[in-house]
């Protein structure tokens, strides 16, 4: 009890410091980033969606290691969950309970739209809200719905992991092309003065690669959990 009370007191004091610093911040915050991207973002990256422009161009190096983190975590999760990697996909939903028919029917109805929406979000990530990471998550959800529809659908985790790692190498490769055209790593390989349509080739390629990679990574994680569920 003493512990909880003292904890609350301490947290309230810390809260006070937080509030003071935020009040301080509201008086002095910098709009440098905002102004810079508003003026130069579109012309430099060719991406109408500035967020995509940032994570595929200005800060591509971060995104590479974000993808790398996903690889590391997926490999870690599959290593820790002990089953043999060659074993075919889980069937625990059949074991535990039969999925309601209503659910299956609606899943069948929704599945193609979800997949299409995910692919749309990936491919149009540079002109509208979305991008590789977000779209990849949607595609992964669509693939997971597939498990409800047809439990016998078999995917081997081993294959997923292999494809995912090859994709990661490809993403690094695509990011490095600019070294041969511009002499610097991790940016758009086309010239700064190229038109938006030309620059979009690079953005769409990279978004698609990241999208597939994220989708596969999430599916692999989910499959590892399904196998544990039995």
């Amino acid at each position: 009890m003493i512990r909880r009370v003292s904890l609350v007191v301490m947290l309230v004091i810390i809260f006070g410091f937080f509030v003071f610093s935020i009040l301080d911040l509201e008086a002095f915050f910098s709009t440098f980033g905002k102004d810079y991207f508003f003026e130069n973002g579109l012309s430099e990256t060719g991406s109408v969606n500035l967020v995509t422009g940032i994570y595929l161009d200005y800060r591509l190096f971060d995104s590479l290691f974000e993808a790398g983190l996903l690889i590391a975590a997926v490999s870690g999760v599959t290593w820790i969950s002990q089953h043999e990697i060659t074993e075919k996909n889980a069937t625990f939903m059949l074991d535990r309970q039969s999925t309601p028919t209503l659910f299956v029917t609606f899943s069948r109805l929704v599945y193609p739209f979800m997949l299409m929406f995910g692919i749309y979000v990936i491919l149009f990530g540079h002109v509208s809200p979305g991008g590789g990471f977000q779209g990849g998550a949607i595609v992964a959800t669509a693939i997971l719905i597939l498990y409800y529809i047809d439990v016998q659908k078999a995917t081997s985790i081993d294959k997923i992991l292999t494809i995912e790692k090859i994709l990661f190498l490809t993403i690094i490769g695509v990011g490095s092309i600019s070294f041969f055209t511009k002499g610097t790593f991790f940016t758009n390989p086309f010239d700064l003065s190229a038109s938006e349509q030309v620059k979009a080739i690079y953005l769409i390629t990279l978004n698609a690669l990241i999208g597939i990679k994220v989708a596969l990574g999430l599916v692999a994680i989910f499959t590892a959990f399904l196998k544990e569920g039995r």
């Binding site: 810079y36 200005y58 591509l60 190096f61 600019s178 511009k182 002499g183 610097t184 790593f185 940016t187």
Partner: peptide, 12 residues
């Protein structure tokens, strides 16, 4: 070494 040839303040 700034990646992508951007200004130091923007790039990594």
């Amino acid at each position: 070494l700034v990646f992508g040839g951007w200004s130091e303040r923007i790039g990594i």
